[in-house]
Design a protein around this nucleic acid. Structure first.
Lengths: 198, 198
DNA sequence: CCCAATCTGTCAGTGTCTGCCACTTATGGC
DNA sequence: GCCATAAGTGGCAGACACTGACAGATTGGG
């Protein structure tokens, strides 16, 4: 679940498996007892490793829920870079996020649970927003490339951040228990809210 | 700088003064040595109080830079609520943020320095974005009120988050050393980036 | 002037996170 | 198959942020 490239070598396979296992156990514990009421030591004990090792796999407790932000961010960036330049900018952005949502990363139920936990604690929300800042740095140059006129940098940044907000809102809504729509459907709807005239 | 309501009673005055002093010293230290390289104990020593007292004024180290988010958020909400209902939504939002920027809160130099420090550390940026989430909760109902059609909630959330992104980008750009434009000018420009057709 | 509310410092404790070291285990060259 | 090297792991000590409890000092209002 962590990498988009297939791990090569038994070592890398084992590492990814352990990583996934820790994340799964952590999310379950957080979902049941609340993020602040679960210590790293408890997670470690439940998995069967030492607390020190948990911190080797995840630099911070919050990352057990968030996962690896950089990897997915680069994925979106590559998608966006490969869109035809004559395509309208917002369409290209939408398509790039959609490609990410359609990537079979982890199973549905686990993903929803992670998103639900993520929305329940300020510390996690904050960490998740940090991920967006990282993505923004990757996407802004590409968007700026496609713009014309003055103040390209500022306008690109605005567009990227706004689109990321759409992405976040769509995923949050999708995680709600009563949401039956697909995440792609919600994403399109959120994007549409910013283009009433187009 | 912390409150919009005038503190009543000498005790409240003293409290606000100490609070402002801690924030000022902290921002200076962060600006010089970096957020992660300054401990709460060092801030406390520089101010002349105990570390425990610093934590009494600010629940978290990051809050010495951010300040009180709720107060300003309510200010924006009130502004937005008082805009005429026939005014276009984005104009009303823009006007509400502008009113906040024009409020003489603290001196220019200190404000810029705080924003610069804020932009320099991921943890601070994230904490600042959390503030936006709090604002969003206040603004979304009012925006939803003005919308028509289906999915008002999701669309309102999208619009609010996007406008907050504009606000954040404008302030960040304003804090840059080489930015000579006013914050209001930058805010308008950022808003404009989302309405190419209107 | 006095009493009570408030403020403050000190201390002890929890939890996250990071180096450091020793030990075990897998990997790849020979 | 053997062995040096690299990688993974656990335990330990320590830095730091943050919290609760307690005692003493300060101050404001009556």
């Amino acid at each position: 679940m962590s990498d988009l490239v297939n791990p090569v070598g038994t070592r890398a396979i084992a590492r990814d498996a352990v990583r996934a296992r820790i994340s799964e156990v952590a999310v379950d514990l957080f979902d049941e007892h609340g993020f602040d009421n679960v210590t790293v030591e408890q997670i470690a004990a439940a998995v069967g490793v030492s607390a020190r090792s948990v911190h080797r796999y995840f630099p911070a407790k919050e990352d057990t829920v968030i996962g690896d932000p950089a990897g997915w961010g680069e994925h979106v960036r590559d998608q966006l870079a490969s869109r035809p330049s004559e395509e309208p900018l917002w369409d290209a952005l939408l398509a790039s996020y959609e490609a990410l949502l359609l990537t079979p990363s982890r199973n549905e139920a686990q993903g929803r649970k992670a998103m639900r936990v993520l929305g329940s604690t300020p510390a996690l929300r904050a960490r998740n927003l940090e991920k967006h800042l990282l993505w923004a740095r990757l996407l802004t140059p590409i968007v700026a490339e496609r713009l014309e006129g003055n103040h390209r940098e500022l306008r690109a940044e605005t567009i990227v951040q706004a689109s990321l907000a759409c992405f976040d809102i769509a995923l949050t809504a999708w995680a709600e228990a009563d949401a039956v729509e697909s995440s792609v459907e919600l994403l399109r709807r959120s994007f549409g809210a910013l283009q009433p005239t187009a």
